[in-house]
Simulated assay, not measured.
Amino acid sequence: MGHETKSVLVALVIPVVGILAGVLLLSGSTASVLGFPAVLVWLFAWMPITALLMHIAWVRWDREDIEALDAQWAEVGGR
């Protein structure tokens, strides 16, 4: 599996599956957390989780590629 595939999997696929699974499982629930519907708490919980997963993908796979492209661009006088 290539770097791009891993990055997309971690930063995009996992959050989409997590959000959709939670919505499907909790949509009919009457449970609440601190007075808020459980599905709403689930959705808001995925905001920082998604940001964390995007950060992990950037640090683990994408940063080196972008820095290499920047270095190549600087060599040809792009900056």
Rank of each mutant, 00 (worst) to 15 (best):
H3V: 08
T5L: 12
S7Y: 07
S7W: 03
L9W: 04
A11L: 07
L12A: 06
L12E: 09
V13D: 02
V13L: 02
V16I: 12
V16N: 04
V17E: 00
G18V: 01
I19R: 01
V23K: 14
V23L: 15
L24F: 06
L24T: 02
L24C: 05
L25P: 11
L25W: 06
S27E: 06
G28P: 02
G28S: 09
S29C: 06
S29Q: 12
S29R: 02
S29K: 11
A31T: 14
S32T: 14
S32Q: 13
V33C: 14
L34A: 12
F36I: 01
P37W: 11
P37D: 15
P37M: 14
A38Q: 07
A38N: 08
A38T: 06
V39S: 07
V39M: 04
V39F: 00
A45N: 05
A45C: 11
M47N: 04
M47C: 02
P48S: 08
P48F: 05
I49M: 10
T50V: 00
L53W: 02
M54F: 12
M54D: 10
M54V: 13
H55A: 14
I56F: 01
W58A: 13
V59I: 11
R60Y: 01
D62M: 15
D62I: 09
D62Y: 02
R63Q: 09
E64W: 02
D65T: 14
D65W: 09
I66R: 10
I66V: 13
A68D: 11
L69K: 11
A71K: 08
A71D: 10
A71T: 11
A71W: 09
Q72K: 04
Q72D: 12
A74Q: 15
E75K: 15
E75C: 11
E75F: 08
V76F: 03
G77H: 00
R79W: 03
R79G: 13
R79D: 08
R79V: 13
